[in-house]
Design a protein around this nucleic acid. Sequence first.
DNA 1: AATGAATGAGATTTCATTCAT
DNA 2: AATGAATGAAATCTCATTCAT
Lengths: 208, 208, 208, 208
Amino acid sequence: MPTGTDTHRRKVSEMKRAAIVDAARKNFLTHGYAGAGMAEIAHDADVSTATLYKHFASKEALFVAVVKQVARSAGDYSGLFAPNDTVRDILYKACRTYLAAQFEQDANALMRIVMAEVPGAPQLARETYAELGTRRIDSFKAVVDQMIARGMLRPHDSAFSARIGSGILKEIFVWPALFDKEIGLPPDTDEKIHRCIDCFMAIFGSED
Amino acid sequence: MPTGTDTHRRKVSEMKRAAIVDAARKNFLTHGYAGAGMAEIAHDADVSTATLYKHFASKEALFVAVVKQVARSAGDYSGLFAPNDTVRDILYKACRTYLAAQFEQDANALMRIVMAEVPGAPQLARETYAELGTRRIDSFKAVVDQMIARGMLRPHDSAFSARIGSGILKEIFVWPALFDKEIGLPPDTDEKIHRCIDCFMAIFGSED
Amino acid sequence: MPTGTDTHRRKVSEMKRAAIVDAARKNFLTHGYAGAGMAEIAHDADVSTATLYKHFASKEALFVAVVKQVARSAGDYSGLFAPNDTVRDILYKACRTYLAAQFEQDANALMRIVMAEVPGAPQLARETYAELGTRRIDSFKAVVDQMIARGMLRPHDSAFSARIGSGILKEIFVWPALFDKEIGLPPDTDEKIHRCIDCFMAIFGSED
Amino acid sequence: MPTGTDTHRRKVSEMKRAAIVDAARKNFLTHGYAGAGMAEIAHDADVSTATLYKHFASKEALFVAVVKQVARSAGDYSGLFAPNDTVRDILYKACRTYLAAQFEQDANALMRIVMAEVPGAPQLARETYAELGTRRIDSFKAVVDQMIARGMLRPHDSAFSARIGSGILKEIFVWPALFDKEIGLPPDTDEKIHRCIDCFMAIFGSED
DNA sequence: AATGAATGAGATTTCATTCAT
DNA sequence: AATGAATGAAATCTCATTCAT
């Protein structure tokens, strides 16, 4: 019965593919795009280079696969609204979610690499920006929309305020981390988040 | 009289050095750090590779020189205060100066490359962040301080507000440009700047 | 059955390795260490430079391999004692064996190169001296020990006499060859050997 | 008066030449022929590379000059015969003189380098062998001749015995030093010399 | 006569990719 | 389908030597 064999083969093949993407992500993040080597990736994934090339036609194709895999995890903004939450409570949770997605998934390191490839692979960079940049702000915007609907924020252009909020968070937390791989979230993150929220509410808060 | 000869030689040598840095900047910006080739840089500068290496001991040293040269042009924030300027006028000019420094000198492209080198050359990245990141915000902060002193802005922590302002501008203008080398300042830049100023003044404006 | 493939691959690979060492020996001997080029070695071995570097991680590693290969042929001193041989017969055969190992395997040329690398690679030089210098004398000493046991030579410190014998042979035959690559064993080698034996027996011969 | 100036100029020029040869010797001995760099030699001699090339047309020519300079100091065997000296006393002094010339003037290191250049510069090697090898043995032979004339040694072919003596000394003292730049004369040099003399006298001593 | 910046040619080494088995 | 040895093309860097001043 070839079916069973086929299924088995496909399963093995997919596992190898996953192992490759995994090994590739680690290598790209550690050594950068140019620094990562196909041989080492293959070795780390317990696969021959030839097999690697069966799955991904080129280094760039492999890199695209890694980016897409990471970008897929955008952060979950559902269930942010608990019954007795204040405006600040909800904004705080939204900020935390935003930052978690940015820091926990190596998204910073990935952004660095993607940016570096802008001259060489503009399409990839644009797509990644859409995934890692725009999409996250859209999620944030959805939260803002809900808050406006509930009268928690003054009515305004939420697309704009979401970017403003994102910009403030990036400046305080993300930007430094882009230039230093050892910088994570600082110990006084909470306090800083609240100062950011102060700003946000000074602009977009309801007027009472 | 060796002086004449020496002076001449030095002058020629310095011109070659400048030509090398120039060619290097173009190459790095076009192809990225790894993509740029010393041979091509030397060729573009009309110099042999050996001469190139007399001036810069390694590819990295050359890159550092390029970064420093670009960073040197941090933007001139003096003479921002004209007699009858409103708060908004001054902030507008400050924003324009900030954005000019960021866009006119290829600073965006350079930032991309430096970020890409974070894993491989952390020290360089940190120094560049200090030059291209922190220093620009400091200039901005000095403007804010003056405005506070003149009662144009509510008294507050100017170090913080300078970062907030910088963060907002980056999000709206810089961030997209980091992911797309063809993105410069948009046609409706003025309008966008004014929306940013609205935000800034909502937070830090004097309360009248 | 991967075994067949593996075996075949290994066989091919080993042949290439041998070809590389061979080509390398010729190049090193002809042009010296610094003068030999990896590209030419690869070409002579019908192999790409990349393959060469798969087998030997560096020029130095390749040179070490060459030295070890040559050193392996230390000369065979067994079967020197025939029933009716006189003392002189046996010493003559030992001298011939010693000189054969020194001249037939390019050991002289190799010694030259190794010596030249003394400042740059002291460890290698020391090891080579152990292989090409000490070990050969040890073999000679074993022969002397047997001759003493049979009463053919006066009892004495064989470690010392072996060095004396080796020193005399080196002076007469090896030393000139070290300074002139075209000098091999001279036509009157036999006569010279016997004069050396005269000296040796004058010192260490039994007194009858 | 140009004469004074000319004389002065020539004097300066000769001093520079000497400085160059000196710096060259140090560099060659330290780094080997290939390892030594013309730029560094010029720097060490406080001279420009162009001046260096005015004095010596090429690296090889400079090396030849160094070899000749060192070879010129062959050791002084005159005044070896004191009134009441025994045979052994005189031979001891001759050995000491021989070894001093070999070890004190970096002759070992120079020999290493010359040998390395045998394939590339055969003529130089042959000449050096004549200077550093043959000539020293000739001096030794002269001493032997005198000893024969005085009845201190059995009449024999002194050209041969000088080589035998030289060979024994080389084996014991020089050979190891050729493979290890840190090896000088050992602490028990005297004892070893006397064992060598024992051998020599067993062969060539007068029979009383 | 002297300088030292500049050079051309070549060195070793690396790596994404292919191909015979 | 999978292997891993082999490759070609290029990269960074060095150095003896020359030349304009």
